[in-house]
Amino acid sequence: MANTTGPDYALEARGIGKQFGSFWAVKDVHLRIPRGSIHALIGPNGAGKTTCFNLLTKTLQPSTGQIILNGEDISGLRTSDVAKRGMVRSFQISAIFADMTVLENVRVALQSAHGRAFRFLSPISSIRGLDTRARELLADVGLADAETAKAADLSYGKKRALEIATTLALDPQVMLLDEPTAGMGHEDIEPITQLIRKVSAGRTIVIVEHNLSVVSTLSDRITVLQAGQVLMEGTYPEVSADERVIAAYMGGVEDAH
């Protein structure tokens, strides 16, 4: 599976595109994400970043192109199968199970790998064994004391942390994070950045992020999208010095949330 001749890419997009009606939200996007790296996807609002994530995880069917995960073409798979192969995303709008407790939220994800989710006659105590791991994950994201709270009652920052814990529960090799710090106050951004740094060990991460200081702290390389297309790719110093990026980005970043 691993590419032995060149660098080892965890994820590749080969000319992916998505057409809504006559409008191309994403067009001919190529990505190559080296295994173990943190790759940022930036660009003004409406540039097609979330759509890219939807294509990569097969939430949307690409109009063109191929997606290669660990050397395997996953273009024809569905989202759940992509997740089973080790690529899991978080959502721009916190995707939590609002009416369930914090612990239950994580346990749902743990059940995915556990494979007993169809046991409709077993008591819930039959999966209590998962609680230990769920608590570890919650402790990792700083939610150790919130396990019995209803997810809907968490603060915004804690909801994002919960979503990351839920994503981590699948122990994904590739994690796609869609604006993990969006709408957060400064006091929340720093811990989340630390958290992403921590969980990046042994994983490949693609992150959509508007906060450029977070981008510069975390990412090895950056792809800049504009109007659905790749404007450029490079390291933070390269990208931030580029005239086109400055021009494109200054127009959109302030009203990005």
Binding site: T57, T59, R78, T79, S80, D81, A83, K84, V88, R89, F91, A95, I96, F97, A98, D99, M100, E104, R107, V108, A109, Q111, S112, A113, H114, R116, A117, F118, R119, F120, L121, S122, P123, I124, S126, I127, T166, A169, L170
Partner: peptide, 21 residues
């Protein structure tokens, strides 16, 4: 049941359940 827990999760957020495999 373990299954019932997934049902509630589907009720709350089906796309998320699918994205978890």
């Amino acid at each position: 049941s373990p299954y019932g827990e997934i049902l509630k999760a589907i009720r709350d957020n089906e796309p998320r359940v699918e994205s978890l495999g």
